[in-house]
Design a protein around this nucleic acid. Structure first.
Length: 921
RNA sequence: GCGGAUGUGGCGAAAUUGGUAGACGCACUAGACUUAGGAUCUAGCGCCGCGAGGCAUGGGGGUUCGAGUCCCUCCAUCCGCACCA
């Protein structure tokens, strides 16, 4: 075998690795552990395109590199296999989603395996597998049975709460609970019926059922979370979404707001992701203040972060949904207010947003009293105030807040200045924090920062408000009115939710005749026969997509355990993920929810870590690169790109697979389209040049590049290296197959180093110093580059090395064998083949990573560029071990340099370790 | 609007600590071998200039002997959030 026949080689070694279970890893070893994981994919029907494996290739290189460096590496893969597309397909065709899912997974696995990934497939998991979701249900039960004690700052079993209620009531209990939780005494509690007790506990449970305003998508028949809604339309499918009140299962993630924020400090995640999570949690410091209302016993409570501006308040605004609206509205204003409230309710989120610049609102007819000045200030309602944030009411400071300013302008309200640095224009407020406070009684003369502190003190002293921390984060809705998800392990007895006992887990998804809602509007599970526990109906909604992905990284540690979600032994050994790689699109979804669940499990004492991924890297997205041909309007003639401006043309997408280096394969094009069979082509230099544009990779744009085709044509090793060669792993870029030949050429060249004509032949001669220098330089640089995940430059380093060895005609075992080892993470198949041709047993996976030796890297002499006043003038050679003084003296003694200096004395001579002499005159 | 990132040849990019900008690859040009080449090898390849030389890392300014890299400012593109009081 003289030719580099990659197909044969790759087939052979993939089979060998599988048969010999080369990549299976055990939960225990003398070696240090290394857990490296990819975000598991949703197996869509379209299969993998060339962008998906980018991250998988990078993590596989690191996994293999770590193995060679003596680590016990856990590198698993699984499938996030519950999801909407399979269910949509089921609705259309009647085929059970599990069948679709299995088919898709089979195709994904085949494609992944063709790329030679070193996954331990014996640990594969699927979130839709009852053996897996048994434990998702088990965790749900744990969360349900817990409450959050804000004093101990952790989740505790609900029994500790029940005990406290029975002895002391809840007056002294500090907990994350519903806003409307009443204060009760022990007697109250003990007098409750069982049903009342359960209803009361729901206000504390970390997963609870509550009437909530949700994003209802009628077309999908389900509720979506905020991050699944984009501009009023569903992220998947683009269907309209409306706001609707529904009883929903929710998770009290807000209890963990602060810990989720603080946890970010100790993990090595990309700054943009951390920043997105910080913004999502949205912590802000301020105060809540009560405003009393004239002729009413009600008080309006507002939240503000700018108490320093309190004397700038000239009106107040309530959210239309606020419960106070009905109470406060006067008789005269009633009709107008009611109309506005109804209108606001019916406006979809989208309308509300697109209308953001149009200020609307209605006067309630009521006045509040300024807590310090006692002035009468009008109370309005307006939809720019959100019911869900703060208290649903604001004190409006038009001089300092743009929205308040716009509102004041529209309704002709006063705009008092409260800061000597404020510069208002006709259309703009000034929220400055510079300057000194004015017109503000006891705050006058203070800086805004001082005034905030002073204001809070005063408010607390007078008992009209409290210091307050607010969060944007909302509790996470934990239910979908869908079939293809984990059943929620709950049944109802007299309308009260009860947990399904452990021995009934997994609560397996039942068969249904159709995957649509029932006629009564119940979720599809309403169609299941015998869907009850001892006659009590089971919950009909299922868990959301993020349930399984919130804890799957622990299951890989012990995937077949039937008695525990993961054994303590496995948890102690693997602890956490050392390296997690995936897309940044999950920043405020999966990556936040999973941190929440992990913190909960930590509180329960089940796991030892409260962050599960020490290091996270986001691989960039691969966009499509579409090609275009230009048809002259009204003719069957296509004109090459450079000449298209001479005609009136229409650009048409052309399949990128029949274009190479932007040159169209005209024959293939003629065959691809019926109407192009007899078309004419106007060429440039005998070629048809196509235009191109970056777009999303999609079938309709004919720009999907399939990895299978490239594996077929160039081999997996070439594709792996080429994907890394494209650029930094974190960077998003359009896919472009131009240039893959360069990598292919490199592998053939590497192969040919081991071959003389037809035969495999390496020499056992001692390598020369020069050859050793190439080898050790390569080992050093590649290892450094992999450590810092600069995989594109590692590929370049290999190319340079092979070019050098090739021109040295080096075919020595002592050089080529270590080269094979360090190449193996990148191109495992060819490395394995050569490893065996070199006469080694076992697999290259077990080889130790070669250490570089400094002595071969040191040069005899070093060329120092000499510059005068920053301009480069000459290069002078010095002994490698010359001291700084020797170099300096030698440089100044040099005749040529003396001439440049023109008799002037140098003021300064700089010799730097990076081999440069700079003389300043 | 707020937050984040990025800007270097025809293209993908490199430059790890402030030290010869453009490594490596693609494309392109010329040549060699060849019946042939979509194989292989050799050489060239930022821009202007015949040349010496000059100009070049989005624009402008600054610090420095020296800036792609540090500071200020402006511009462009992409991503995330978006009435958060």
């Amino acid at each position: 075998m003289a030719e580099y026949s990659f197909q044969e080689i790759e087939r052979k070694w993939q089979q060998y690795w599988k048969d010999e279970k080369v990549y299976e890893v055990s939960n225990g070893s003398d070696k240090p552990k290394y857990y490296i994981m990819d975000m598991f994919p949703y197996p869509s029907g379209a299969g993998l395109h060339v962008g998906h494996p980018l991250g998988y290739i990078a993590s596989d290189i690191v996994a293999r590199f770590k193995r060679l460096n003596g680590y016990n590496v856990l590198h698993p893969m699984g499938f996030d296999s519950f999801g909407l597309p399979a269910e949509q397909y089921a609705i259309q065709t009647g085929q059970h989603p599990s069948i679709t899912t299995d088919e898709n997974i089979a195709r994904y696995k085949e494609q992944l395996q063709a790329l030679g990934f070193s996954y331990d497939w014996s640990r594969e998991l699927r979130t839709s597998d009852p053996k897996f979701y048994k434990w998702t249900q088990w965790i749900f039960k744990l969360i349900y049975n817990s409450w959050y004690n804000t004093e101990s700052d952790k989740a505790e079993h609900i029994d500790t709460l029940v005990a406290a209620l029975a002895t002391d009531g809840n007056a002294d209990i500090k907990a994350a609970c519903d806003e409307d939780t009443p204060t009760i005494t022990a007697d109250d509690w003990n007098g409750f019926s069982e049903k009342d007790k359960q209803l009361f506990l729901l206000k504390y449970r970390l997963t609870y059922q509550a009437e909530t305003t949700v994003n209802w998508c009628p077309a999908l028949g389900t509720v979506l979370s905020n991050d699944e809604v984009k501009d009023g339309f569903s992220e998947r499918g683009g269907h309209p979404v409306v706001r609707k009140k529904m009883p929903q299962w929710s998770m009290r993630i807000t209890a963990y707001s602060d810990r989720l924020l603080q946890g970010l400090e100790k993990i090595d995640w990309p700054e943009p992701i951390k920043e997105m999570q910080r913004n999502w949690i949205g912590k802000s410091y301020g105060a809540e203040i009560d405003f009393s209302v004239v002729n009413s016993s009600h008080k309006i409570r507002v939240f503000t972060t700018r108490i320093d501006t309190i004397f700038g308040v000239s009106f107040m605004v309530l959210a239309p949904e606020s419960e106070l609206v009905v109470e406060l509205t006067t008789e005269e204003q009633k009709t107008e207010i009611e109309e506005y409230v109804v209108a606001a309710k019916n406006r979809s989120e989208r309308e509300r947003m697109s209308d953001a610049k149009n200020v609307t609102g209605v006067f309630t007819g009521r006045y509040a009293e300024h807590p310090f000045s006692g002035e009468k200030i009008p109370v309005y309602i307006a939809d720019y105030v959100l019911a869900g944030y703060g208290t649903g009411a604001v004190m409006a400071v038009p001089s300092g807040d743009q929205r308040d300013f716009d509102f004041a302008k529209k309704f002709n309200l006063p705009i008092p200045l409260i800061n000597d640095a404020q510069k208002l224009t006709k259309t703009e407020a000034d929220p400055t924090k510079e300057g000194k406070i004015i017109n503000s009684d006891f705050l006058d003369g203070l800086s805004p920062t001082e005034a905030m502190e002073r204001g809070i003190e005063e408010v607390e002293k007078r008992g009209i408000g409290v210091r307050k921390v607010n969060y944007k984060l909302r509790d996470a809705i934990f239910g979908r009115q869908r079939y293809w998800g984990e059943p929620i392990p709950v049944y109802y007895e007299e309308g009260i939710p009860k947990l399904v006992p452990d021995e009934k887990l997994p609560l397996v998804l039942p068969e249904v005749d159709e995957y649509l809602p029932t006629e009564d509007g119940d979720p599809p599970l309403g169609r299941a026969k015998d869907w009850n526990y001892k006659g009590h109906p089971y919950e009909l909604s299922t868990m959301p997509g993020w349930a399984g992905s919130s804890w799957y990284f622990f299951r890989y540690m012990d995937p077949d355990n039937e008695s525990e979600f993961c054994s303590q032994e496995a948890l102690k050994y693997w602890k956490d993920v050392d390296f997690y790689l995936g897309g940044s699109e999950h920043a405020t979804g999966h990556l936040l929810y999973s941190r929440f669940w992990v913190k909960f499990l930590y509180d329960m004492g089940i796991i030892e870590v409260d962050e599960y991924a020490q290091k996270l890297v986001n691989q960039g997205m691969i966009q499509g690169r579409s090609n275009f041909v230009y048809r002259i309007d009204g003719e069957n003639t296509y004109v090459s790109k450079g000449l298209k401006d001479q005609h009136k043309t229409t650009a048409i997408h052309v399949d990128v697979n029949i274009v190479k280096d932007d040159v169209l394969d005209v024959e293939a094009f003629k065959q691809s389209r019926a109407d192009a069979k007899d078309a004419e082509f106007i060429l440039e230099d005998g070629k048809y040049h196509c235009g191109w544009e970056v777009e999303k990779m999609s079938k309709s744009k004919y720009n999907v590049v399939n990895p299978d085709d490239l594996v077929q044509k160039y081999g997996a090793d070439t594709l792996r290296m080429y994907e890394m060669f494209l650029g930094p792993i974190e960077q998003s870029k359009p896919w472009n197959t131009n240039g893959i030949e360069g990598v292919y050429k490199f592998l053939r060249k590497f192969w040919s180093l081991f071959h003389q004509g037809e035969a495999f032949q390496v020499s056992d001669e001692e390598p020369t110093k020069e050859e050793l220098k190439v080898l050790h330089g390569t080992i050093k640089k590649v290892a450094e580059d992999v450590e810092r995940l600069s995989l594109n430059t590692s590929v370049s380093t290999f190319m340079i090395a092979v070019n050098e060895l090739s021109s040295l005609k080096c075919n020595k075992r002592a050089i080529l064998e270590p080269m094979t080892i360090i190449l193996s993470p990148f191109a495992p198949h060819i490395a394995e083949e050569l490893w065996h041709l070199l006469g080694n047993e076992g697999t290259v996976v077990d080889a130790p990573y070669p250490e570089f030796q400094e002595k071969y890297l040191v040069e005899d002499s070093i060329e120092y560029p000499v510059s005068v006043n920053g301009k480069m003038r000459a290069k002078i050679s010095f002994a490698a071990d010359a001291s700084k003084e020797e170099v300096e003296a030698g440089a100044l003694a040099n005749e040529t340099i003396q001439k440049w200096l023109d008799g002037k004395d140098p003021k300064k001579v700089i010799v730097v370790p990076k081999k440069i002499v700079n003389i300043v005159v």
